[in-house]
């Protein structure tokens, strides 16, 4: 007779199966119950937009940094959005870069989902001269499964929270006068390699941040892990290790489906698909409630 803890470690798959057969999960949830979601928006004052997502134990922090730069020559009237995801050693205990691959995959997943929904032309201050560069960084502080959903939700919440200061271009002489006023001026780093020569650009950046980002039709995701003909919504790390097949529903804020991602060899039967879709719709409502309450 071996104890429960040992059995859990030695036969993780059997262990989970015994639970799932009885329609309950090791952490006490039903198969179709997602973990409690906590969403804190705008708690980081040094970022222009931020959001902390806690999905059960999984903790993810997204923050946005904004800098004014000269646009690149190919798209002179478009701003730039950079997206990156990092798994911190606080989550894994491994020193940095050990889990780099997982972070790269998540970053690419997030990039393809988020970037098309940001209107980069609204980030333009003056074509050919000055645009905003937003860099969105998502840090995974604690990893207890379902990073995909948490990362996407945190990124969306942080981007919706972005408030940029207003920027006005000025001539070089004018800049000095304003410096003493309430508004805070900043010399923008003129790139001397640009073809026009080394003219410097002056811009006035207001100290209050008011301009929010247009982000209407943003994506939200709901993930399921397929195991024993059942779909486990919002899988924990323990469940993710055992199951190989995963289905991710990409949803619109309205609750309509936008797309579906499936990996692994298990079959998603039409019946299961329909029940997953229904669950996703419910989950998106929950997301939206939290998003609206927070902002």
């Amino acid at each position: 007779m071996i104890s429960e803890d040992v059995y859990r470690k030695v036969h993780p798959k059997e262990y989970l199966k015994r639970f799932i057969d009885k329609d309950v999960r090791p952490d006490g949830r039903a198969v179709s119950t997602a973990r409690y979601l906590r969403l804190t928006i705008g708690s980081i004052n040094t970022a222009v937009g931020s959001a902390l997502v806690r999905l059960g134990n999984t903790t993810v922090l997204a923050g946005v940094n904004a800098t004014l730069i000269r646009p690149n020559n190919a798209n002179p009237d478009k701003g730039i959005v950079e997206v990156s995801v990092e798994l911190l050693p606080t989550a894994s205990g491994e020193s940095r870069n050990v889990r780099g691959e997982e972070a790269v995959v998540l970053a690419e997943f997030l990039r393809t989902l988020i970037i098309p929904h940001i209107d980069v032309s609204t980030l333009c201050v003056e074509a050919d001269k000055l645009v905003w560069c937003l860099s969105l960084t998502v840090y995974c502080i604690d990893h207890d499964g379902n990073l995909e959903d948490s990362v996407v939700l945190a990124a969306v919440a942080a981007l919706r929270n972005v408030r940029l200061p207003t920027v006005r271009m000025v001539d070089g002489d004018e800049g000095g006068d304003i410096e003493n006023g309430i508004e805070n001026t900043r010399m923008i780093d003129a790139d001397n390699e640009a073809e026009e020569g080394n003219e410097s650009i002056m811009a006035v950046v207001s100290s209050k941040r008011t301009e929010s980002l247009e982000l209407d039709n943003f994506p939200l995701t709901v993930s399921f892990q397929l195991f024993c003909e059942k779909a486990l919504i919002d899988p924990s790390a323990e469940e993710e290790v055992v199951c190989v097949s995963r289905v991710t529903f990409i949803m619109k804020p309205t609750g309509d489906m936008r797309g579906i991602l499936k990996e692994g060899g298990h079959i998603l039967s039409p019946k299961l698909y329909n029940s997953c879709l229904a669950q996703s719709k419910e989950r998106v409502k929950e997301y939206m409630k939290k998003l609206q309450a927070g902002s």
């Binding site: 980081i44 040094t46 970022a47 222009v48 931020s50 923050g63 860099s135 960084t137």
Partner: peptide
């Protein structure tokens, strides 16, 4: 003992 201290990109 190994220590690793990091600052977030947006930590200010």
């Amino acid at each position: 003992m190994h220590c690793d201290v990091r600052w977030a990109q947006f930590s200010g």
